[in-house]
Amino acid sequence: MKLLDLVKYFRDGGSFEEFCQKQSLDLESEAIEIYMEQPLKIDNDLAFFEIEKTEGYIEYDYNNIKYSNLFDFYYFLDAIEESRNDQNQSLSNEELTKLLFNYAINDA
């Protein structure tokens, strides 16, 4: 799954609980984090891990693939919610994806 796919899924009304079930993620986790395959490029694949597995590391190796933490899922869901307000509603999924990616690599 790419970041654009994730944005589309949630902007189209996908639920967090259903997403976690499909991804075999533990809803009882303290936090679920969104990672991207290295080197960071907007179209790279994402992976989702419970913080208990990654121990909060910015970089995480899984199945011989190196990933970098973009942000936690709660931040992402807040951004999706913000994209629905009047001021941001005109943002396309692609524009929102670029904003989130730029935030992750520059500001986080």
Rank of each mutant, 00 (worst) to 15 (best):
D61V: 10
E30K: 12
D5E: 08
F19V: 07
S92I: 08
G56D: 07
Y75M: 07
A104I: 03
Q23V: 09
S90T: 11
Y67W: 09
Y35I: 02
E55L: 09
Q87K: 12
Y67R: 04
S24H: 14
A108Q: 14
Y35R: 02
F76Q: 02
F16Y: 12
S92T: 15
F19M: 04
M36D: 04
Q89G: 07
E37G: 05
Y67E: 07
Q38D: 10
L77S: 10
D26Y: 10
I65D: 07
S15Q: 15
N88H: 06
E17Q: 10
Y75T: 06
N102M: 13
S24G: 03
D86N: 15
L40K: 11
S15K: 15
I65R: 12
F16S: 09
D26M: 08
K22L: 11
Q38Y: 00
I58M: 15
D12P: 02
F48G: 03
F76P: 04
E94F: 01
K98Q: 14
N106Y: 12
S90D: 11
D107W: 15
T54V: 05
A47S: 13
Q89N: 13
E50L: 01
D72L: 09
K53V: 04
Q21P: 06
E37T: 09
A104H: 04
E33R: 06
L91D: 04
S24T: 11
Y35W: 01
L4C: 03
N93D: 15
K53F: 11
I51V: 13
A79C: 14
A47E: 01
M1I: 01
D45G: 10
D45V: 00
L70A: 03
D86F: 10
A31V: 10
Q38R: 11
I65V: 14
D12S: 15
I32G: 02
N102S: 13
N85P: 04
C20H: 06
D86W: 12
C20N: 02
D107I: 15
E59G: 13
Y60K: 06
L3C: 04
N85I: 13
P39N: 07
R11H: 09
F48I: 01
D86E: 14
E33Q: 13
T54D: 02
I105C: 00
N64K: 15
R11G: 00
D43W: 03
G14F: 00
M1V: 08
Y74A: 13
F73K: 00
E30H: 11
L100W: 06
E30T: 12
Q87W: 12
T97I: 00
I105G: 03
D45A: 08
L77P: 00
L25P: 05
S92Y: 06
K2W: 03
E59N: 14
F10I: 02
N106P: 01
